[in-house]
Design a protein around this nucleic acid. Structure first.
Lengths: 116, 116
DNA sequence: CGCCTATATTGACATTCATCAATGTAGGGC
DNA sequence: GCCCTACATTGATGAATGTCAATATAGGCG
């Protein structure tokens, strides 16, 4: 016969985490924070918005400076952060670099929130 | 007779945003960035994880210092940021303050990502 | 090979942020 | 009213971040 542990009822008002409930560890939290840091800048959010609306593989760096009113090195900097956060894909053709949103990347981030 | 504007076909390879595609404005991006800034810290992610797992209205500040190994003022600081980002609810009872995750708050953030 | 353009990197600077110690505020017990 | 505890705020500090100018790297054309 399989026995299950008897759980004592929680009677006091002190804070308690339900038995077995997964709470985020420090290392995992640091990893997840990387993606949210990438999203924690208005310009990067706008970059993602532009790339989401554009045809995949059709957006180059020089097309992104004007909409954001940022210098080319700054845009390159932000794109690098989004790239390293795993949100973008970069396709190089000669000296040109074309960026696109990785399909499902933002859904994965949404999934992280659901699984907190 | 109602006339519609004729759209020129896009023939060059320069980046273009499909007609009518919504792209995030600077002001809206700043507002959305506030929430992601709130999520862009490992300790705040862990706070949310703890609060999500706990019974609503059962978690006080002093219960959060030990799991995160942070001082009470630091925890209070982080809770304030999450509160102002619209993710938490605070219920004061005397000198005690009990925090809980606003139901649907993280789903709303996930919705922001979907609507980028 | 020289030159051009696109992009990435570096360094400097200003701003933002996380942390703590110190302290203020508030509620409650005696 | 005093004292205690819980919590919020302030100020200081060091780290992290965003921006630009300058520059390096890379590919391609003549």
């Amino acid at each position: 016969m399989k026995l299950l542990p008897v759980l004592e009822p929680v009677t006091d008002e002190s804070c308690c985490v339900p038995a077995g409930a997964p709470v985020l560890g420090a290392d995992e939290a640091r990893q997840q924070a990387v993606v949210f840091k990438a999203l924690a800048d208005p310009n990067r959010l706008r970059l993602l918005s532009i790339l989401k609306a554009a045809s995949p593989g059709a957006t180059c760096v020089c097309d992104l400076t004007e909409p954001l009113d940022l210098s080319q090195p700054t845009v390159s900097h932000h794109l690098k952060i989004l790239l390293e956060a795993g949100l973008l894909h970069r396709e190089k053709r000669g000296t040109w670099a074309y960026f696109s949103l990785i399909p499902g990347a933002l859904d994965n981030v949404a999934g992280v929130l659901a699984d907190l």
